[in-house]
Nucleic acid binder design. Sequence first.
DNA 1: ATGGCATGAAGATCATGA
Length: 268
Amino acid sequence: MRHQLFPGRLTGVKFATWNVNSVRQRQGHVLDWLAREQPDLLMLQEIKCETGLFPAQAFRDAGYEAVVVGQKSYNGVATLARIPAEVRHRALPGLNDPEPPARYVEVEAAGIVFGNLYLPNGNSGGTAGYEAKLEFFSALTARAREMLAAGQDFVLAGDYNVCPTTDDLDPGTLSDEDALVRPESRAAWRRLLWCGLTDAVRALHPDERIRTFWDYQAGAWRRDIGLRIDHALLSPRLAERLVSAMPDREERGKEQPSDHVPLVVVLD
DNA sequence: ATGGCATGAAGATCATGA
């Protein structure tokens, strides 16, 4: 049974993005979280299963329909919605790959386009692997420009695999050559942002130390050594409706957690 | 000690993650 976030206001929307690192391993976590947080929409990344193996019925029973773009073993994205949602794209437009990896799905709901993305990490596959990351960024930026030109309200949210500034990671977590912090990666992030988009978390918390990921290794969570790599970017009119934006840290302390936590955004 | 967890693959280790 859904209940309205803002009774009497039809425009309010609560959404989240969460890299779950295998949806089949994390199904219980996600269902518990949905029951507790009651978002209108949840964008999942790294579901790590083929589309047909996604546990759609379990989420349907919880009141959420799923749009799934999966593949075997790696990557995979899915958007869950308890409000009517229409599919716009099952791959990122502009990527000239006949068999693109499952890293993007776009739906429209409540008059807003939600782009759910899992950007390539960029540390594997040598030069070509890193190029793929920058190419994804280029295509994403082109998509943002297209929607801005059309006057469309939109959100681009997911695992960007970029720490935008030195404030977004703890010393000693990554080397300077890591694809998550390389100057070209950060420049690509800024080119996207500077189209006129708003980093929802930083708009409300410009100086706070905020993390969305803690490695499984080296006691990273225990030592609270992490990264801010999951982001939600808002188009101009949506930015003016921004009420709150914060990762749900609690989730990382649960049994068998994902290494990422949900990032939750509320618009009025 | 770029590999100390974690995940998925028709696997008895390897690729990937960030």
